[in-house]
Amino acid sequence: MSENNTRVIVITSGKGGVGKTTTTANIGTALANMGEKVALLDADIGLRNLDLALGLENRIVYDIVDVVEGRAKLRQALIKDKRTQNLALLPAAQTRDKSAVNPAQMRQLIQELREDGYTFIIIDCPAGIEQGFRNATAGATEAIVVTNPEMSSVRDADRIIGLLEAQDLRNPYLIVNRLRPKMVKNQEMLAVEDVQDVLGSSVKLLGIIPEDEVIITSTNKGEPAATLEGNLAGQAYRNIARRLRGETVPFLDLEEKTGFLDRLKGLFGSKK
């Protein structure tokens, strides 16, 4: 695989807590399991978390700042996931801040990873729109915006889309995370179509992740849900990975199957 085929994707959101890190861990793991050679880069310097999502926190020796400042070679700092072949993590530094790395250094790192034959380099962007955002987006050629179907995160996503455009990252992918199908059905929560309508046609819908308790339990164990069978969120993440590889995969049917009791309630017009 030549270095020109490397996809460099930044995962961003503006607002914190919408699921960037979980998304990075899951998409990365799913892609690696499909045979891609994946490097995950935690650009959230000072607030290291991607290692936890992947269960790699005990294996960190060097971090991104050690590499940038010449204390370690990139290959020494990269942690190879033993459970998922082809998956490597470059951890963030925990005791430094966003100014420890600059966009030029970021681009240099990505260039080295390209030369090492990675097919996907996925960057977990910190929340916010300052230095950390500029670093994380510096070497990327594609962007994924993660949002929740909720006002403030959609507003921040809109702002981020504008800032990505200013960095020449046009037409970002959109992931709507933590959707609650039942609430959407009752028109209590923004639907994916509403989010798309509000954000405009410049974004391409890449995936819809339902709110799922498995995300909490799998994160507790450090095993991304995408590696587990029999749960919707993991399935949705695997579908995203397939779409990124160019496959056409229909969106999951998240509509709750209505049971007998629901139909009975419907018959008598009772409100929930």
Binding site: M151, V154, R155, Q187, E188, M189, L190, D194, V198
Partner: peptide, 14 residues
Amino acid sequence: KPAETAKNRLKLVL
């Protein structure tokens, strides 16, 4: 409906 309210408010604020 709450979803409609959210959408209308969002459109304006954006």
